[in-house]
Nucleic acid binder design. Structure first.
Length: 436
RNA sequence: GGAGACGUGGCUGAGUGGUUGAAGGCACCAGUUUCGAAAACUGGCAUCGGGGCAACUCGAUCGUGAGUUCAAAUCUCACCGUCUCCGCCA
């Protein structure tokens, strides 16, 4: 949510920002409503003030005839207040509906574009592996090795589910452990920050296992409930499944105030993510690329506003470090206005090379949301001078397990159908060198 | 799931219908004192919104939402949450 004062003072910027994101909003209508809201609010407040004043007189006055007269008068004023409050309530409801539809404004360095075709590759890393044979896709290799079974899962649970088995499971836990080792090691983080030339305090991440259920109201505050059809809903319990650990990590400090010296606060949350993939009919149906359920380690950082850009750069640097450690080729992409998320001011994705598909595919995302989510969540910071303002929030993937497993399977595949295990993972897999 | 207790400012804790936005304490900030610090003393110290250049002022907020009343932290109802005991369970 943007600040209404900011919207009033910068309506051209807000309107232009929404247009770049291809979201229709009517700022003039909002401002007309806001004028009405302020007028009505003022009237209600003046009447309430009168009631308060007279009520105090009643309490202190000894003259009982006068008291009765004043009480009668206040009864009438009270009815007046009730009617005005009803009117105000309706105005505020309309006002909120429009406010919730106004997206965050894209940063100045966000490329403008209609959809993902407008995304820009910023840089790439790594040599694509050369094969003496035609590289296969992950599901073929996985099926042959008996480590991915989508057929049984299809019968048991439906499409877009899979059984992962054996060494692939061990590898998943190895990846998680490897990433947690990075995120909880201050030396490593410092090194990453220095190499990426970001000037922030590279403090450790606190590992968290968050709930996978969230109240729809809170999801709304995270500004991640724009497309209800994307979520698994449990109306009997007024709950929904999270689509990312971000949703229950970012809301951890709802209605709370940080002290300036506490920031940045960094979390590394591990959870399963649940997505209905409602808009992806027939897309990526093979294997485990696009699943209804996948596991992910996610970073969430609360920072001072002036640091949030650098914080995002730091998070991207961590993502790159993870992929470099695994020796997986990737490209870093500035996501354009037409493709970026509703609450984002700047979104950067990383796409990892998938030789079987002969394509880069999205494995990481990092969202800088500024004060957009924190305004809805009411998450603030008390500065050292006592002033209180909204914190800035950044979230980013550390590792999305399913897609990273695909990248490893495809990049490390061998002519005999086996998969070589990346060196850094071997210590987590009993020293094993191949899955075969 | 059953029974009971409770939810007040950053924390603690008073407050059961009328200048209570809320005593006291801790923490914090500024000053006095000190070479400096501690201690002591003095003062300040909730958030949000409206109006005002400002001093200031009006309103809202005592878990959330409704209600009763001229007047609600205080009374009523619903919901949410926490704690204790029992049950169940990994």
């Amino acid at each position: 949510m943007l600040d209404i004062k900011f919207i009033r003072e910068n309506k051209d910027i807000v309107q232009a920002g929404a247009k770049k994101k291809h979201i229709d909003i009517d700022i003039e209508q909002l401002i007309t409503l806001d004028d009405a809201r302020l007028k009505e609010l003022k009237e209600v407040e003046e009447l309430r003030s009168e009631v308060n004043r007279v009520s105090n007189d009643i309490a202190r006055n000894q003259d009982s005839a006068l008291k009765i007269q004043l009480i009668e008068e206040m009864r009438i004023v009270k009815d007046d207040i009730k009617a005005k409050e009803e009117k105000l309530k309706n105005i505020i409801e309309e006002w909120q509906k429009i406010m919730l539809k106004i997206p965050n404004i894209p940063s100045v360095d966000t490329p403008v574009g209609p959809d993902e075709s407008g995304n820009q590759v910023i840089r790439n890393w790594g040599e694509k592996p050369q094969f003496s044979f035609t590289p296969k896709e992950h599901y073929e290799i996985g099926k042959a090795l008996g480590i991915i079974d989508t057929e049984t899962a299809g019968e048991v649970s439906g499409s877009r589910y899979a059984y992962l088995k054996g060494d692939l499971v061990i590898m998943q836990f190895g990846l998680i452990q490897m990433c947690l080792d990075i995120l909880t090691n201050e030396e490593t983080l410092k090194k990453i920050a220095e190499e990426a030339k970001v000037s922030i305090n590279p403090s450790k991440f606190l590992p968290v296992i968050p709930p996978v259920f969230i109240r729809p109201l809170v999801q709304m505050k995270m500004a991640r409930y724009m497309t209800p059809e994307e979520h698994y809903l449990f109306p009997n319990d007024d709950l929904m499944l999270i689509g990312s650990a971000e949703h229950t990590l970012g809301s951890m400090h709802m209605n709370k105030i940080f002290e300036e010296k506490e920031l940045p606060v960094r979390y590394a949350g591990y959870s399963t993510a649940f997505r209905r993939e409602a808009g992806a009919a027939g897309k990526d149906t093979n294997g485990i690329l696009r699943q209804h359920q996948f596991d992910k380690l996610e970073m969430e950082v609360f920072s001072l506003p002036e640091n949030s850009m650098q914080e995002q750069n730091f998070l991207v640097a961590i993502q790159e470090y993870v992929l470099q450690t695994l020796k997986l080729p990737y490209q870093v992409v500035a996501v354009c206005t037409g493709d970026m998320g509703f609450p984002d001011s700047r979104q950067i994705d990383i796409e990892t090379w998938m030789p079987g598909q002969n394509k880069y595919r999205e494995t990481h995302s990092s969202d800088s949301t500024g004060g957009f989510q924190s305004r809805r969540l009411n998450t603030r910071v008390r500065r050292s001078d006592g002033k209180i303002e909204h914190v800035h929030m950044n979230d980013a993937t550390v590792i999305a397990l399913g897609r990273t497993l695909i990248a490893i399977i495809e990049n490390y595949q061998q002519a005999d159908g086996s998969v070589k295990i990346p060196e850094v993972l071997r210590k987590y897999m009993g020293g094993k060198e191949f899955i075969k």
